[in-house]
Amino acid sequence: MTDHDPKLLNRLRRIEGQVRGISRMVEEGRYCVDILTQLQAIRAALGKVEGAILQDHLNKCIEGAITSGDTADQRAKVNELIQLLERSR
């Protein structure tokens, strides 16, 4: 994860700030639609972070297992990916 760490950490810090902002909005009794809009923005931002981390995993870990020729590692990585995808349903 070293290639994307600074960018991902910046994104996560922005998301963290957005979450704090939503907390303030709720405390202040702001309009529900405004809060929901911000929640949707956070969900989209988290989706982008998740996609970047998944892409990195595919490019490094999965590809590394494939090119290593280690059948046990290949099976382990595939099973890991399947479990991850099943949890996201």
Rank of each mutant, 00 (worst) to 15 (best):
L54K: 02
C32Y: 06
S88K: 15
L58M: 15
I53K: 05
Q38H: 13
D70W: 13
R14C: 00
Y31M: 02
I53M: 14
L54M: 12
R13A: 09
G47T: 09
D70P: 07
E27Q: 13
N10Q: 09
Q74L: 14
H57W: 05
V26F: 07
A44H: 11
R75D: 03
E80Q: 10
Q83W: 04
E86R: 11
P6L: 02
E16Q: 14
L9C: 06
C32Q: 04
T71N: 10
D5T: 07
L58T: 09
L84Y: 14
D5W: 03
N79S: 08
R43H: 13
N79H: 12
Q74F: 10
M25A: 02
M25E: 00
V19H: 08
G29W: 06
L84P: 00
R11W: 06
L84E: 07
R89M: 04
A44M: 10
I53C: 11
D5V: 09
T71R: 14
S88H: 14
V49G: 00
N10L: 03
L36K: 04
N59V: 13
A52S: 11
N59K: 15
V26P: 00
A41S: 14
G29D: 04
K77W: 00
Q40G: 13
L8V: 08
Q18F: 06
R43V: 12
S68W: 11
Q40V: 08
A45V: 06
A44V: 08
T2R: 10
I66S: 10
S88V: 09
R13H: 07
C32I: 07
G17Q: 03
L58K: 09
Q55S: 14
Y31W: 06
R24T: 14
R89Y: 06
G29N: 04
Q38Y: 06
A44I: 05
C32W: 01
R75S: 05
L12Y: 03
